[in-house]
Write a protein that binds this DNA or RNA. Structure first.
Lengths: 344, 344
DNA sequence: CGCCTTTCTGGGAGCGCTCCCAAAATTACC
DNA sequence: GGTAATTTTGGGAGCGCTCCCAGAAAGGCG
């Protein structure tokens, strides 16, 4: 049975309040008393009881990371571990703990119910001081709920509501750079495998693709656009749909999809990059490990996570001011072999 | 301001205690009263306050996942997301929440201090009802501490202490199957890139390698054993050390290391599998995506995670009995192209 | 040295819940 | 119809902490 404040107080010959002051670094404690109390704390291994503290302060020092339902499937994408590492590091640095809320990958309606339940349990029950939401579809019901409940949160991605803080990478520019690179290499039939179009990253990367074509005055051929879901399987399926339209280059909105596309191209007897150039997005470790190494758009995934936590912390710790923070991080084109750096 | 028990009670015209009974499904409540109370709960959106509840019950319904320091680097290995998914799903199913404790990847001594601090904060402060520990070195100080503090925990891996419950995969047999397969294909100089030898998975896979050789009466050549750290870079470095000893086949204790090894072999002008056969371990998604697709040992990663939670839950919910649970899951050899399924 | 500030300390109240016990209401049974 | 057993209900105490307020101690100053 671990000691309580009261017990420590008795051992140190002071009152509960004084021990509390010492623990919470309140300045008004005589140095010798402070030292005596610390001594007892050290000796007894006293540690404040989290629940009792939360009950009194109404804060838990726990941040939630919520990754809504459907996307859980994507969890095999190395994007997430890297993101989580960024988030976890930043949490550590700010002395917050991290609670992970994934949603079961079962049938949609069941999962919807679970999500409701979890939302109730985790947020309404005041488990969390704030949350980071990642990879949510634009119309996810979680946003209105969070806003209504007044839970501080930061989105990774974007959401057009004046009171939502977010951190995003410049998906439009990144995608545009990728496609422009392909066009510069002389490709005229550049296809794209998009992400899910109900997510902002999916939409933005498609927008970048369109902009790149538009800048060259090339009309968009809808047959060269296939929607994927960020997974390898999705990339394969999309590539199969694209194949009959004979693209000479493909911009995939994620490296996993690019890998899937390459597999399909190979099966169709096409060489990469000689017959079809491929560019991905993310620059996950896999990108440099496949054959040929992927040309891709690097996004600062870890920073995305840590930045989200920074914003959230500032949001939580200044509850008065209604400031909204928005950060957009830059992307970078990493040229490897899959685009076939050839002259036209 | 969310409603409290007391407020719900007043609205329903009953006492605090009765509402508590309804919420906690205690049978001794008259059905019509129960219904009336539920009605109010629904209307007000009442949700019990987690901290208050924890304070009274001394349980939090939160499970911690602890992945000790050094290994955090490995977090790019897709092994972890899959494991986490298994754990998260099982937590959901049992109505527990999941807290993630990773340790900062800074300098070792700093990280050691942080780990101490986190240990204090998270465990001594009773944030968690129990923990799952994954990928800890055998001599990690966390084990004695957990045992001493009487925190229920389940290890993913193994630990030889009578009071430790764990779930593991059959690394010895898995590794042995892999190496036997290579021997069966006619290889005589089979090298191995091991995992970190201070981890039991690393040791066991090496043991499987030794057993396979011993079964054929082949003496172990220590020059053909190189220690890695489960990362791609580690695999590359180990392969470089192995190269001068001209192995004709390599068994890598993880797919990431196998991928690294292949890269080095290629750079040395060797073909895989024609010149050197390679077998990995894990069967992460990457394994089927590289060229050539990896022959590897599949382990049920997700099940490993969910099983750990099952054990932990049973441990936590039957605190009286001193039962120790030990589960070892089977592995399976998945034959693809990298081993070169050729006749001798 | 006495009075007024400032610093330090102790105790009460309360955060929202559960759990126990006793009282009230109901049911069972002779 | 009355007593005993059982079910249902309400209230008190307490979980371990923080925060506020009032009182004690210390310091400043004429």
């Amino acid at each position: 049975m671990p000691p309580t404040l009261e017990e420590v107080a008795k051992l140190a010959g002071v009152s509960r309040s004084t021990v509390s002051r010492v623990v919470n670094q309140h300045p008004n404690v005589r140095p010798e008393v402070r030292e005596r109390v610390w001594e007892v704390i050290r000796k007894t291994g006293y540690q404040p009881h989290a629940a009792a503290r939360s009950l009194a302060t109404r804060r838990t020092r726990v941040i939630g990371l919520i990754i809504p339902q459907a996307v859980t499937t994507l969890f095999t994408d190395p994007y997430f571990p890297i993101l989580i590492r960024g988030i976890a590091d930043a949490c550590n640095a700010h002395n917050y703990h991290l609670m992970l809320s994934l949603f079961s990958r079962r049938r949609v309606q069941e999962s919807r119910a679970r999500q409701d339940l979890l939302y109730q349990q985790v947020l309404r029950s005041r488990y969390l001081d704030g949350v980071v939401v990642s990879s949510a579809p634009l119309d996810d019901p979680i946003f209105p709920r969070l806003l209504e409940d007044g839970v501080p949160f930061v989105l990774i991605g974007r959401y057009s509501h004046e009171r939502v803080s977010y951190v995003d990478v410049d998906n439009v520019v990144g995608a545009r750079m990728a496609v422009e690179h392909l066009l510069r290499l002389g490709h005229e039939r550049v296809a794209t495998i998009t992400g899910p179009l109900n997510m902002c990253a999916g939409q933005d990367r498609l927008e970048g693709y369109r902009q790149a074509l538009a800048a060259r005055g090339i009309p968009v051929d809808e047959d060269l656009i296939a929607e994927g879901d960020f997974t390898e399987q999705g990339g394969q399926a999309a590539m199969r749909r694209l194949l009959p339209h004979r693209p000479t280059a493909v911009f995939a909105a994620s490296d996993m999809m690019a890998a899937g596309a390459i597999k399909v191209l190979r099966e169709a007897g096409l060489r990469v990059p000689e017959d079809v150039a491929v560019v991905g997005f993310d620059d996950i470790p896999l990108a440099s490990m496949v054959e040929p190494p992927l040309t891709t758009v690097r996004q600062p995934i870890e920073q995305l996570g840590s930045m989200a936590v920074e914003l959230l912390v500032s949001l939580m710790e200044n509850p008065g001011e209604e400031t909204v923070h928005r950060v957009v991080l830059p992307t970078e084109l990493v040229i490897r072999a899959s685009c076939g750096v050839r002259s036209r």
